[in-house]
């Protein structure tokens, strides 16, 4: 795989980062990343994945944009209200970067269809707004040894962690019980944008091998007080999902 002259120009500023270069950019071009959920997290994450040059991005969401999504789901413009999120997002990302491939999947992830919907990818980004689906995605990712980058937000707060099966705790190790679902989550658009940017950083690091990923650590972002902290999280040797790894 080679980079075209326009790609070399497009990605020039990031390829100058230490340890990146043409080889790092080729790794991104070869990478397949799924964004599961095209909400506040997923929209922002998808934009930066596309801008960074991830070669294939798979966008999964069953829903259509609503007017009250517009404060945070920034791939939706006024004219897109009522359209399928995954399809609108695909159109916008292709306009931003025609040198990558984007696939829209209008579907809800279930235990039965996870393989068909997510497929064989290098990284999965969490764009979910519910815990139940996150646990399904975690099981799929553990089974297929796919890194899963979790984030969750509320108001001006968020948390995230990077799950690399076998190398650190999986989502079920960290959350042995399903946290209660919240019907209507309060959120400022900048909060998922912040966490999504960090998810993309983690993705790029995993693909290129740069830096130290957030494995075995949970990051907490407190936007109210502008405090960022991490706490160590460990594997559960009796985890029903990943203890066999």
């Amino acid at each position: 795989m080679s980079l075209s002259p326009s790609e070399l120009e497009r990605y020039e500023r990031q390829m100058l980062i230490s340890g990146w270069g043409v080889e790092g950019q080729k790794k991104l071009k070869s990478a397949k990343v799924a964004v599961v959920g095209i909400g506040g997290l997923g929209c922002s994450a998808a934009i930066y994945l596309a801008a960074a040059g991830i070669g294939k991005i798979i966008l999964v969401d069953k829903g259509k944009f609503k007017l009250n999504n517009l404060n945070r789901q920034i791939l939706c413009w006024q004219r897109d209200v009522g359209k399928f999120k995954a399809e609108v997002a695909k159109e916008k990302l292709e306009a931003l970067n025609p040198e990558i491939e984007v696939e829209a999947v209008v579907a809800e992830i279930t235990k039965d269809n996870a393989h068909d919907v997510i497929g064989d990818v290098d990284v999965v980004l969490d764009g979910q707004d519910n815990w139940k689906t996150r646990f399904i995605i975690n099981e799929y990712c553990v089974r297929h040894s796919i890194p899963f980058i979790h984030a969750g937000v509320s108001a001006l707060h968020g948390q995230m962690t990077t799950i690399v099966p076998g190398k650190g705790p999986c989502f079920r190790c960290i959350f042995p019980k399903d946290p209660p679902e919240v019907e209507k989550i309060l959120v400022l658009g900048a909060t998922p944008a912040l966490l999504a940017s960090l998810q993309v950083m983690e993705t790029v690091k995993l693909v290129t091998g740069i830096g130290k990923p957030l494995v075995g650590r949970m990051l907490f972002a407190n936007g109210e007080e502008m405090v960022f902290e991490t706490v160590e999280v460990k594997r559960n040797v009796e985890c029903p999902v990943c203890s066999n790894l």
């Binding site: 959920g37 909400g39 506040g40 997290l41 997923g42 969490d126 764009g127 979910q128 707004d129 519910n130 815990w131 996150r134 984030a151 969750g152 937000v153 509320s154 108001a155 707060h157 968020g158 948390q159 959350f175 946290p179 679902e181 919240v182 989550i185 309060l186 959120v187 998922p192 907490f220 706490v231």
Partner: peptide
Amino acid sequence: VAFFPPVGGG
């Protein structure tokens, strides 16, 4: 000892 409420929005 760390106490936290995980948040689940996306």
